[in-house]
Design a protein around this nucleic acid. Sequence first.
DNA 1: ACGGACAACGTGTACGTTACCATAACGTTG
DNA 2: CAACGTTATGGTAACGTACACGTTGTCCGT
Lengths: 354, 354
Amino acid sequence: MKPPGIHDIARTLGVSIGTVDRALHGRPGINPATRARVLKKAEELGYRPNIAARSLKLNRRIRIGVYFPREIASFFDSLRAGVRAAASTSVGLSIDLVFRTFPRLDEGDVELLRADAHESFDGVLVAPGNPLRIGPALRGLVQRGIPVVCVSSDAPRSERLASIAVDSLTSGAIAAELFSRVMQKPGTLATITGELTTLDHAEKLRGFAANLALLAPHLALLPAIESHEQPELAHKQALALLRQAKRPAGIYLSTANSIPVLRALEETKLLGEVQVITTDLFPELVPYIETGKVLATLYQRPFVQGKTALEILLNHLVNGTKPDPVRRLAPHIVLRSNIGLFAREIDTPGEFLI
Amino acid sequence: MKPPGIHDIARTLGVSIGTVDRALHGRPGINPATRARVLKKAEELGYRPNIAARSLKLNRRIRIGVYFPREIASFFDSLRAGVRAAASTSVGLSIDLVFRTFPRLDEGDVELLRADAHESFDGVLVAPGNPLRIGPALRGLVQRGIPVVCVSSDAPRSERLASIAVDSLTSGAIAAELFSRVMQKPGTLATITGELTTLDHAEKLRGFAANLALLAPHLALLPAIESHEQPELAHKQALALLRQAKRPAGIYLSTANSIPVLRALEETKLLGEVQVITTDLFPELVPYIETGKVLATLYQRPFVQGKTALEILLNHLVNGTKPDPVRRLAPHIVLRSNIGLFAREIDTPGEFLI
DNA sequence: ACGGACAACGTGTACGTTACCATAACGTTG
DNA sequence: CAACGTTATGGTAACGTACACGTTGTCCGT
């Protein structure tokens, strides 16, 4: 009653297990007719390779290069934690994670990849900033046979194996719907983003604008402000925005770099006055949500992203599966009523997974 | 540079691998002093057992009994799909899933468990209805050394290994917060639930009532209606509710059994008039959300629940880990703007995981 | 002093797979 | 026709672990 192995195939066919191995793995040195017989019999017996035995025999160490920025730390630290979690729960294969860190999105990433050109990774995880800049470097990796998985944003046309991120269009659309529900009176909305060259950020704003036009035509939209992930700049821009005559009734912060803006709101005594929807979640943000000063935040689930990204990559390396080229997670809508669940998670990152 | 094995421990200590094996696994026939030395050296070398080798040697088939109800099918089919997904991605061990199905929550479950008393499962997954009724049966399993994991609701005091479910208090609290945001004018709210003896259902209503009192004191709450997961009954109750003089301005449906109620709303031409928040997600519900006739639904992520439940159980069986006794998932808040993501998932269950 | 009982420890084998070497049959070449 | 390459195949050693079994050593009663 035990599952059939290559021995069973060999025995019923009267050949040796060496032959069966050659047939099953497309190795040379076997008569095409024999190969066909073996494959047919394998199918017939419902042969599934015993992965424990395989990985025991091969005992290969898998080296994965992980290229994530340092800033915004709250986000990318969780992403790294997720990657580590996936590595530690994988059974029967030993994985070397090589973390490479560059200052921020689209800053130093390409240089780091080029400097590591001699490294022989089995696979690479990367958080791409500007697809145009980083694209060629990724293509280079792929052409050397190294599969690349993009995390948290995408770099299409880079021939990467897969991309895993929160669905940014939806993320923006949710923000728009929430504003449309809460703000009945006409007014204007502002958006502060990171970097419009980053696909993920651009898409959030597209989703926001599109859904706002659909659901809340009474709300006008100011041109997007780019903070380039720099806290000081974001703070200055927010102050300027809030001090102008026609100040916005609501602000959508589509980057995790939201604290400087909230500080600006406090300084101008507009916190609670202006409706705010933020992105991502970290300890400093929690009290704003708990007190209702921030309406909601759209949690991008970095831990889950990191975990699934490595799972996809490993699955490809070990089993040769072709994953869906894009995988889009649903962001969590975090409100006063459910922040308790998430606050617990971000305090003990990696311990449980939401 | 390869990870140390029992051979390495044995060699550096000048003992045999047999002794190391006895020490590491608490087997008899070893001098306590030797055992201590081995354990210390193992720690020192950072010994991690090679799980591939272990499961190759043991080659045990693991039999898991899965006791879920048939109704509500949309929910429990996804739950089963999640369990299957976890089984198929586990590497190096062959798992026999034995699905047992009873008509509905708290109906035939205990009888089925008793009838299977002779079965020798290595572990059991169960969706408990009434903790009082099913508790003794579960305790019986545990005392026979069979670990039990509760899914989708809990049965505390049953000595189950763990329980995984959506955080029901939060689920109810979210519904209350959404109502409080959308309904500015005073009015009354009704709740229709499944079975108040089911812990999960009771907690949702507690969370709802508590948060409603906090955030929306202008909204009054009618006594909860129990539909006992029966579609016809739910339909009749809804009609009665809607035809009474002081009809509610909003309804919170805390059970997946929501379609009969929505039908009643259509028949009384009150759909869109009365604000509705539902629970869970299935194809029939999608158009209601897409058109805004239903404000939101709180998705309980059955697929994820099933997957993690089996993961927890297997992890315990294979590695002997003690999991957190309760694990609470955050429900997804599904609105017009993000239903697209979920609709894709429920159409192709198991293909991707949100 | 001897055998038996028992504790403590060593040895060998099997798990299913892959990698590699050995071998046999056959054709090609000088 | 000897020498050698090619092709298809068989045989076997690992990989690290678990477990049954065999081997020592010690103590004790007679």
